[in-house]
Simulated scan of single mutants.
Amino acid sequence: MGVDVELIRRLAAAQWIGVELIDVDKGEWVTVEIPPGLSDSDRQIVIETARSLAHRLAGESDGNESL
């Protein structure tokens, strides 16, 4: 059937507890609680900031100093 059970599990959990799952890189996810009432553009800012922070921290943990 080709269903990614892990993805469905994550999305169900996100919907159940009211968080946003942000795919940051090849199946790695960050879970972020986004305050209710934000506009779509403000939600996108939160998502982009979380994704950027995850990439920065991953770069630091790999010894990458080009931040």
Results as ranks from 00 to 15, higher is better:
D4S: 12
G59P: 10
A58M: 14
N64Q: 06
E28F: 15
W16C: 13
R43S: 09
L21N: 13
I22E: 06
V5G: 10
G63M: 04
I22L: 11
V32F: 01
E65R: 15
V24H: 06
R51E: 10
L67Q: 06
S66R: 02
V30L: 11
S52Q: 14
L21I: 11
S39I: 07
I22F: 09
E65C: 07
S52V: 01
L53V: 13
E28D: 12
E48L: 03
P35G: 13
G18M: 05
E33C: 08
A13M: 15
R10I: 11
V19Y: 10
G37V: 12
S66V: 00
V30S: 12
I45G: 03
G18C: 06
Q15A: 14
S52G: 09
L57V: 13
V30Q: 01
S52W: 12
V3K: 05
G2V: 11
S41I: 15
D42T: 05
G37K: 11
V19Q: 06
T49R: 08
L38M: 12
V46K: 08
R56C: 11
R56W: 09
D62M: 05
D62L: 13
E65M: 07
P35C: 09
I34T: 02
L53Q: 11
G2M: 02
V24N: 01
D23G: 00
I22Q: 07
G18D: 04
T49A: 15
V32D: 04
D62T: 00
W29P: 01
A14Q: 07
E20Y: 15
G59V: 08
R56I: 10
L7M: 04
L67P: 02
K26G: 00
